[in-house]
Write a protein that binds this DNA or RNA. Structure first.
Lengths: 246, 246
DNA sequence: CGGCTACTTGACTGTGGTCAATTGGTGTGG
DNA sequence: CCACACCAATTGACCACAGTCAAGTAGCCG
């Protein structure tokens, strides 16, 4: 095992040369590779740490690399000329982003920022395309990831076009419950993994409006809100807000 | 040439056995294939004609095939439970749709309807996946197509989140001008390739609102509207509506 | 303790959606 | 060939959702 100390790529630190192939194992996109291949990928890739709030890529910048989140969280968002922010997706560990951008070249279509201290695996454009060409299975997994992005964006369009804010919030709360492995029943507790301001930006609204909607839900006995902790009071009513067309 | 009469696949008519490989040549996705390969693809594919207004796939239906438009037009859209329609994209000849859905399986994420009499090439899910696996170049082209879909959806989200209806309309008019090879100058004439009701549904609004916006633009001397023919009166003002944040 | 940020609440306004009535163009059947 | 039906488009009246601006509170870190 100690041989890694000597063949280790220059742009990663000692501990990362050990851990990166291990981490790749946990990424759906690289899970099919042999250990040998993973070491090879880790060699062309670079691991970089971003501070909380640091910008990773900016909308319209030329595309030069592709990303996998190793730990931490990244938000992908668009900024309007007036400074309004629409969050497209919260990227969690072992998910990737910018594959489509790297693939079609040109400019990144959105911006990305680290939300906490975050480590990313970064693969240069040319190397990424080489792997795609060389490894059919990898190509299929990249396609699977792009297909997921498409679903998410269609869902977002659906939300923006059809639903009012209370329905969007209710749907989001249900999703969060599912992510946290909590059944959406009366009494269930859910922790917001983000500030309410950012939650508002995911829903396509502003914090003032979200605040009002939360107090309305509270008044109506649907939801209790205490800081970032939500407690479901009436799951049926909550569901009613988004099922069959909020 | 006449040999085609005898090796022709059973599910296509005589003329289609001739024309399908020719048409495939014009699809970016199949342009790289040899003539031989194209005949092979045409053999597993089926050509089907849809009448104006006929539904091709319905949101949430199980995925069983992938489509390429040969001639005609197809709209891809979501329907809200209340019956509001949001058009995601107008698919034109030699473009494809549902590749991501076929790829990730499950259910179609949106509906598709033929706008005029339309001929589609339909490739069953299993055959499509076989071609992707067998032909790396084809896989790359499918990825290119998915990347385009992603861009379009991000653009749509941007429009829905940031722009008011006049700005969305102005941007659309500019796009139509570009598509029709017309410079967006004073006096330029653009023909709407769709009804105003459908245009409204692409912009995420309703025909009444679109009608009002058109008459406002007309009043302001920006645009003349005569049926489906638009004449630009003041291109600078039109651009001003969407550049630097409408 | 001071300053920063996140959040809340109030008052106001505007965009744009709904409902309803009317017009005009088009294709169908008597 | 005309009458009718149907659909696209327009216009008016109304109003509600939600965004903006402003003020104030609570919580957190240095």
């Amino acid at each position: 095992v100690k041989v890694y100390f000597f063949v280790m790529p220059q742009n990663t630190s000692t501990s990362e040369a050990f851990t990166t192939p291990r981490l790749l194992e946990r990424c759906p996109m690289f899970a099919h590779l042999t250990d040998e291949d993973r070491v090879r990928v880790a060699a062309v890739a670079r691991v970089r740490t971003y501070a909380r709030g640091e910008t990773i890529i900016r909308d319209a910048e030329p595309v030069d690399r592709f990303f996998v989140v190793l730990d931490g969280d990244v938000k992908i968002y668009k900024l309007s000329p007036q400074g309004k922010e629409q969050i497209l997706h919260w990227v969690r560990p072992f998910q990737s982003f910018a594959e489509a951008a790297v693939f079609s070249g040109g400019a990144y279509p959105a911006s990305a920022t680290a939300l906490h201290e975050t480590r990313l695996l970064e693969i240069p454009r040319a190397a990424f395309l080489d792997i795609v060409r060389a490894d059919g299975e990898f190509a299929l997994r990249v396609m699977a990831s792009m297909a997921k992005w498409l679903r998410r964006l269609v869902d977002l369009v659906e939300d923006l076009s059809f639903s009012e804010i209370p329905a969007r919030l209710a749907r989001r709360v249900a999703k969060l419950a599912a992510d946290q492995g909590v059944e959406l029943n009366d009494g269930a507790a859910i922790d917001l993994p983000m500030s309410k301001t950012d939650l508002a930006r995911m829903l396509g609204t502003v914090s003032e409006t979200l605040s009002r909607v939360f107090s309305k839900l509270s008044e109506d006995g649907i939801l209790d809100v205490d800081g970032r902790r939500l407690t479901i009071r009436d799951a049926a009513k909550l569901r009613g807000l988004f099922e069959s067309g909020g």
